[in-house]
Nucleic acid binder design. Structure first.
Length: 265
DNA sequence: ATGCCGTATGATATACGA
């Protein structure tokens, strides 16, 4: 089973990239974030045409929005009203073999890394707190969960281009890392991307639009993640981040992250 | 972490991303 997670930054603006991505890598499961479209306007035909018969979408106007597509059947699992907002940041689906995939778009958090001064930062921390508590309650050694998405935090020093220069920048502040670490501990989640690239090597999934040459300057961050519960650790096979998709014309600022599993859905 | 780019929207400016 091959899975991809991708903050697509508007699905309607990126249909050609979706086709290119599927043509190149043919994933069995596609998890998208920041689709930025209401469900009625979702370009479903593009995905059906590419062979994705099963879908779950949760969108809203302009912002946020998540989606999951698969070639094998699934049912939709409950998704709480995180922080009492219906802002379309989470979808969970269950496959016939019992594997559950959680797709998250964690709030970005604004510019100022202080919950007292910045409501968006407070929302980010509160959201992570609620997710942490939720998985703590669900914790069981036999659970086969995969958690993917734009978690909007780069926790390790080598998850950003300069640890020192980003310590006060939202996405890499110690408080955010502390919250994310707590969330990771809530179900003994394994940071699956780092099973393939040691923590001492740089690993990024996002590069700002504002760099003149994003590839040359390479001032990236690892904001996108794939976690698995311990029951799935042995099924991890390989991982790659596709920089070629980030390098297409008018790309998303996030690159898709792929994971291969020794697993039949 | 400055940069000033990209998305969306009853829109020729503004909110948001990170």
């Amino acid at each position: 089973m091959r899975l991809v997670t991708w903050n697509i930054n508007s699905v309607r603006a990126r249909l050609a990239h979706v086709e290119k991505m599927v043509e190149s890598h043919n994933p069995d499961v596609i998890c998208l974030q920041e689709t930025k479209v209401v469900d009625n306007d979702f370009p479903m035909k593009t995905f059906n045409k590419l062979g994705y018969e099963y879908s779950a979408i949760a969108g809203q106007k302009s912002y946020n929005g998540v989606a999951i597509f698969a070639r094998s059947p699934f049912t939709i699992e409950e998704s709480p009203l995180w922080c009492s907002k219906d802002d379309k940041r989470h979808l969970a689906v269950r496959f016939e073999n019992g594997t559950i995939i959680h797709n998250f778009y964690i709030p970005a958090g604004g510019d100022v890394p202080d919950a007292e001064l910045n409501d968006k930062f407070a929302h980010k921390l509160a959201f992570i707190d609620e997710v942490t508590e939720w998985f703590t309650e669900k914790k069981h050694p036999e659970n086969k969960f995969i958690l993917v998405g734009d978690l909007n935090i780069a926790p390790l020093e080598q998850d950003v281009w300069s640890h020192k220069q980003l310590l006060k920048v939202v996405s890499h502040t110690p408080i955010e890392v502390e919250y994310l670490n707590r969330m990771q501990a809530s179900h003994d989640w394994i940071d699956a991307m780092r099973e393939f690239v040691p923590a001492t090597d740089p690993l990024f999934s996002w590069w700002s639009y504002r760099a003149r040459d994003w590839r040359a300057s390479n001032k990236g961050r690892r904001l996108d993640h794939i976690w698995v519960t311990p029951a799935l650790k042995q099924s991890l096979k390989s991982m790659f981040v596709d920089l070629d998709i980030r390098g297409l014309e008018k790309p998303s600022d996030h690159a898709p992250v792929f994971m291969d599993f020794d697993l039949d859905l």
